[in-house]
Amino acid sequence: MSEHGIEVTVNGHRHAARVEARTSLGEFLREGLGYTGTHLGCEHGVCGACTVMVDGAAVRSCLMLAVQVDGAQITTIEGLAEADGTLHPVQQALRDNFGLQCGFCTPGIAISLACVMQEEAGAGEGARENALVRAMSGHICRCTGYQGIRRAIRQLSGHQPAADEAEAVA
């Protein structure tokens, strides 16, 4: 099995490592670097749980090889919040709206939505909401029925909560 040297920056920290050519980015992050917040749910690119940010783009870390990220800037779920612990708006919206239950699929969802928020920063409410929902079509959640995630998306799109939801975001 061929091995290759790579250098990556993960959540602002630089790492140098030797990886087997076949090692997926997800496995490298988990096993090689200890970023176990990245979860491998299907390892064939459907469920989206393993999504991480590579140079600003949402990537399924089960389908990308570690050797492909040489020189890249990577953000995992561990690096999404501010250094002082302040949650990223996506994390906060999921928390405010019961957007997670078991939490296994959550890191990938949070990263995907955070990428859209970055890409659609200048977009209007409707366009941003559509883009966020579209991003969710690449994620499977078995617990929530997507209800809290939809509410979180509405919050992120700047909607005022409906009267019966006001309590939820108080």
Binding site: T76, I77, R95
Partner: peptide, 8 residues
């Protein structure tokens, strides 16, 4: 949620 949302 605190731990699950932050990969902990």
């Amino acid at each position: 949620d605190g731990r699950l949302l932050t990969g902990r």
